[in-house]
Amino acid sequence: MSEFEPRIVAFLCHWCTYTGADLAGTTRQQYPPNIRIIHLMCSGAVDTIYVLKALIDGADGVLIGGCHPGDCHYQTGNYKARRRVAIVKSILSQLGYDPERIWLRWISASEGKLFADTVTHMVEEMKRKGPNPIKKMWTV
């Protein structure tokens, strides 16, 4: 049987992490092709419902990428994203679901290498965790 390849849904903000991902490409950084990127204007635009939807529909991990603190194009969207992530992780962990399938990372437009490293690291971690248990539940 072939090795488990996790599928990661990534919500990346336009001004920093998405551009950072772009830089990773143009500078030929290598990273595993396990992520599906969704391009948003701001990490603060990621409502928890989309994170939950991704996990319930079978993603093995969710990555949210935003600007470093102080760098948000909309001033404070990334800080609000951080609170939302903390809330949803607290809820999931209380209900016995591994909250570390959700990653929030600050990656700037100039950090192509950091983007590639983050994805590489996350894919490794999700492989170690194994498939998302929701994928086996026929009742959702």
Partner: peptide, 15 residues
């Protein structure tokens, strides 16, 4: 809590 933040909080959430 959902409408505000503190700059120095929740550092662990971002790795």
């Amino acid at each position: 809590p959902v409408t505000t933040f503190r700059e120095d909080e929740l550092q662990l959430e971002t790795g």
